[in-house]
Design a protein around this nucleic acid. Structure first.
Length: 961
RNA sequence: ACCCGGGUGGUGGAAUUGGUAGACACGCAGGACUUAAAAUCCUGUUCGCAGUAAUGCGAGUGACGGUUCAACUCCGUUCCUGGGUACCA
């Protein structure tokens, strides 16, 4: 009887489907365990070999935990809203729902072949109205909540209204954008009140600059824009003002940072999130500006704005002060210039008549520059003097105020103080414009390169002279606060997240506009279903396709909020990350029509214990879903505020591509130093070329036979060695993609070798976390292993070979060593070494001619997570009644692997740590040396045996005691 | 430029807390079985030198230096490479 993997796998997959073997109950006396994969976007290209890597890893872990006696939740679904389906619809007219359905069917059939243990009864699809009903519901929770800094959490808007009614904006500890008293609040119109409340909602609408992509006709998130072009398609992206929805994620910045301390993510991923949030501590400092020319003097050239400002303020100074943000207030005596953003509101006010023309020219120049250019030429120094001066509050020095595009309006106060001796950018700026540089750090500044040290003692710094910079920071802030011209300030790089897209294939907002205000759709009217459209092109003025459906837009009932006017539906849709921000909760309770996820159920399943997915979602999806979880927690809907306890990042599998070096239609052998300008892709070449990029004439002829016409259009200049003709090709690792001909479809490999081999091979390839090139050359070895395993049970010639004899001590040692190692490796997600251990174990059993059921039984259970089909088949053939899926995991018993004292390798040499090692010069043969070393150490340790003895090659014996 | 990873045979990769580097697999070479092929099995395989051989000697984890009885592992400098961020004050 031979290993007929095709029949075996088909049979067991059918059986497991029929018996609902993977169905998981929410009621169980067992401890729970939640293993989650990042669900895929069902693209038209189907699954490639890179996809299943993470799924196989999580499947092994889920199956392992199940054998260990846990009730394991291991679901799968689809992130089925998204741009590609819509673009495809634009091109072909096919409805996204139809193509999505089709793609999902393809994905599903591919996934099923690999034999995953997903509980498909819990499948979710973000584009299913039954699912997005709750996405919309959660959006409404965000819309109807605010973040209370006093309590540090989200609260229903009612608590804010109550506060306004009782105290206005006077409550301590909360900063407000506008101030009013309780009586004033009561006099405000409904519209005014709603406008004020909008500034607090966690999901809010506002006019903002957004990344507008003309070609795609939509607005993109920051992380969807790469180098000024759209991530998809590479179309140019420009800034445009539009009414948009946002999530007020910035109020969660501190909690998002703090939460990282409580989760097991890789250090690099935590670092990425920290950088994205970009918290910095510093101070805001206000500088008075020198009185510029009075309105009388400036006459007609004085700007209207500036005169209005003066009249309104009625102060001696003509201008409001200039407020800058700095992380280094200690360097205040080193300030040689100020720079404000070109968009800064003070620019028009403070520019002197002399400089007006220059400034206007500069502003025109800035406007003419696209984001793309600004990105491309970051090193270019530009700027323009405004003619105004700021006064250093400590020494009264006049500091010139410039504008420059390198200062961003959106960060801090949009203005900085330039300290050339301490900041390289400031130094370059000063040098470029010949601004004299003040040195406040003595020898630490060489006049050539700025030195951002905090350790120098301050010089030229008035009352700070001689003080270490580190200490001066606090001293200066305290002083500024006393003088009333500064305060401690924390800033974040992270911005509120744009939450609307002018697109069709996404969740419609449950929002109705009336009299310029946004009103929520009544909960009982959810889901607000996505209406059918005929055309997918954008609506008027960059609105989404939904804006073309006049009937739908006006179909909203006029909300009874006392606001007059017709009601119009919001026509943008939610971004891709809306549905994926909470899907891990829906898997727990996918059929629930009453709520997004029953509280009892979410309490039972609790956090995701292990979450497996790629790093590409490090700052997008992972941050948003963490925020949503915190909001749901704050509002009391779930019992924990971090969604994922442990995150495992799977590395990308890259495809190898090969190129011909082409010159005038002749191909030459590639050498490292060759210019790569004229290369021709060798289609499908990865299957024909050896590891060094060597292509033999023989393989090339085979290729030509298999792909007629693929090699037309050039001839080859063959080299020749003893074995025949060959050339070298240029080799590159690239992300897998259909267009690069470097993709392998998992189906092909599963058909050829079986799912079990495929699963084990993907794991054997290397650590789950590492990126690695795809290469099928080693798959034979894994397949051989399974066949060898099979032969421990059945021999092609002799038939059944397993027996029920009692295992020997040596055999139990082989078994228990494997149990220990494989359990360890599985727990650490070190699946590649686990597969190796299986191979070693089977080799050892083969060598020992061990065919004993007692041992083989346990090997099969160990193997079940990795190769479930063959394990189930052999388990069945051994005569077991129940399913191996529910067997219990072997228990490691140290007794079986305890090594005798003799086997202990050696150890000596004076040295005190937790353990001591002793090196001993040996002239005797090895065995005697070990005995001698042992004796010496025993005597020395007063009879205790050394812990470990290691024989070392250079005539030395090391003894660990 | 900054912040994270990573550099180990012909290849993918092992080495869990510093303790005989190269497990396991691929590839390659040789052999067994076979009319032949496939399949399977066995032997060898880090490099250099010596030897018919068993084996011996020397070098060796990107490079240089340090700590240690002992370093792929820890520290310093440097080079290369993958990823992330990008004028964030």
């Amino acid at each position: 009887m031979e290993y007929d993997f095709r029949a075996i796998e088909k049979n067991w997959q059918k059986k497991w489907t029929e018996t609902n073997a993977y169905k998981v109950s929410n009621e169980s006396p067992k401890p729970k365990f939640y293993v989650l994969d990042m669900f895929p976007y069902p693209s038209g290209a189907g699954l490639h070999v890179g996809h299943p890597l993470g799924y196989i890893a999580s499947d092994i872990y889920a199956r392992y935990k199940r054998l260990k006696g846990f009730n394991v939740l291991h679901p799968m679904g689809y992130d089925s809203f998204g741009l590609p389906a819509e673009q495809y619809a634009l091109e072909t007219g096919q409805h996204p729902a139809v193509t999505t359905e089709k793609n999902i069917a393809t994905f599903r059939s591919q996934l099923d072949k690999i034999g995953f243990s997903f509980d498909w009864s819990r499948e979710v699809r973000t584009s299913d109205p039954k699912y997005y009903k709750w996405t919309q519901w959660i959006f409404l929770q965000l819309f109807e909540s605010w973040y209370n800094p006093a309590t540090g959490k989200a609260e229903p808007l009612a608590t804010l209204k109550k506060m306004f009614e009782e105290d206005g904006t006077q409550t301590a500890g909360i900063r407000h954008q506008v101030s009013f008293t309780a009586p004033e609040w009561k006099t405000f119109s409904e519209n005014r009140k709603l406008e004020i409340l909008m500034d607090y909602r966690l999901a809010f609408s506002s006019f903002g600059e957004v990344n507008w992509c003309e070609a795609l006709g939509t607005v993109l998130a920051n992380d969807e824009v790469v180098n000024g072009v759209s991530e998809r398609g590479g179309h140019p992206v420009v800034k445009k003002k539009m009414r948009q929805w946002y999530l007020r994620i910035t109020v969660y910045a501190d909690r998002l940072l703090e939460g990282l301390e409580r989760v097991e993510f890789s250090e690099s991923l935590k670092e990425q999130q920290r950088n994205w949030i970009g918290k910095s501590q510093g101070a805001e400092i206000s500088f008075n500006l020198t009185p510029g020319p009075s309105p009388k003097e400036t006459g007609a050239s004085g700007s209207v704005d500036s005169r209005l400002a003066i009249n309104a303020s009625g102060l001696m100074s003509h201008h409001s002060p200039l407020t800058v943000y700095t992380t280094r207030p200690d360097t205040i005596f080193g300030v040689d210039f100020m720079v404000i953003a070109p968009e800064h509101e003070l620019v028009q006010q403070i520019t002197t008549p002399d400089q007006k023309e220059a400034i206007d020219n500069y502003l025109t120049y800035v406007k003419s520059r696209s984001d793309r250019e600004r990105m491309a030429e970051v090193k270019q120094i530009t700027g323009c003097f405004t003619g105004a001066y700021a006064i250093n509050p400590f020494d009264g020095r006049e500091i010139p105020v410039w504008i420059a595009e390198y200062v961003l309006a959106g960060y801090g106060t949009g203005a900085i103080m330039g300290v050339p001796c301490g900041d390289q950018r400031d130094y370059s700026f000063a040098k470029h414009f010949n601004i004299p540089i003040t040195n406040i750090i003595g020898d630490h500044f060489d006049g050539q390169v700025a030195n951002p040290t905090k350790d120098a003692l301050l010089t030229n710094s008035g009352f700070l002279n001689g003080m270490p910079m580190r200490d001066a920071i606090d001293v200066v802030i305290t002083k500024l606060v006393e003088m009333g011209i500064g305060k401690r300030q924390v800033n974040y790089k992270m911005r509120d997240a744009g939450f609307s897209r002018q697109r069709y294939w996404g969740e419609p907002f449950p929002i109705v506009w009336n009299g310029g205000e946004a009103f929520p759709v009544d909960e009982k009217d959810l889901p607000l279903e996505l209406p059918h459209v005929e055309k997918y092109g954008p609506g008027p003025q960059g609105e989404g396709p939904l804006a073309n459906l006049i009937d739908w837009v006006t179909s909203a009932p006029t909300p009874l909020h006392g606001v007059a006017g017709g009601a119009l539906r919001e026509t943008s849709t939610m971004p891709g990350y809306a549905g994926s921000s909470w899907y891990f909760l829906r898997y727990m309770d996918p059929q629930n029509d009453e709520t997004f996820c029953g509280r009892k159920v979410s309490d039972y399943w609790n956090q995701v214990d292990v979450y497996v997915g790629g790093t590409e979602h490090a700052v997008g999806h992972l941050l948003y879903s963490r925020m949503w979880t915190k909001v749901l927690f704050d509002l009391g809907h779930i019992g924990y505020d971090e969604p994922y306890k442990r995150l495992v990042n799977q590395g990308m599998i890259t495809g190898k591509s090969y190129f011909f070096l082409l010159e005038n239609e002749v191909v030459f052998s590639y050498k490292k130093q060759d210019d790569t300008a004229s290369l021709k892709r060798f289609k499908y070449g990865h299957n024909y070329v050896d590891n060094l990029g060597k292509l033999t004439r023989k393989m090339f002829d085979k290729y030509n036979a298999e792909h007629p016409g693929a090699a037309d259009g050039f001839s080859i200049q063959w080299l020749r060695d003893g074995e025949g003709e060959y050339i070298y090709l240029k080799e590159e690792s690239e992300k897998m993609s259909k267009s690069k001909f470097n993709v392998d479809n998992p189906n092909d490999l599963v058909d050829k070798y079986g799912a079990d081999t495929f699963r084990m091979y993907e794991m054997f390839l290397g650590p789950v976390e590492a990126s690695k090139p795809w290469d099928t050359k080693g798959i034979e070895g894994v397949h051989r292993f399974l066949k060898k395993l099979w032969r421990l049970f059945y021999d092609d010639m002799k038939g059944k070979v397993w027996n029920t004899d009692a295992a020997t001590a040596d055999e139990l040692k082989i078994l228990h060593r494997a149990i220990r190692k494989i359990e360890d490796d599985t727990e650490r997600f070190s699946f590649n070494t686990a597969v190796s251990t299986f191979m070693i174990c089977v080799n050892e059993l083969t060598d020992a001619k061990c065919h004993k059921k007692e041992v083989l039984d346990q090997i099969l259970v160990l193997l079940t997570p990795y190769a479930p089909h063959i394990a189930a088949e052999l388990w069945h053939l051994l005569g077991h009644e129940g399913s191996v899926l529910d067997a219990s995991y072997p228990v490691f018993n140290a007794k079986h692997v305890t090594e005798s004292a003799k086997e202990y390798p050696v150890s000596i040499n004076g040295r005190v740590r937790t353990s001591i090692s002793i090196a001993l010069d040996i002239t005797q043969p090895e065995v005697e040396a070990i005995v001698l070393a042992n004796d010496i150490v025993q005597k020395w340790l007063e009879g205790k045996a050394p812990k470990k003895i290691i024989y070392v090659k250079n005539k030395m014996v090391n003894v660990v005691v």
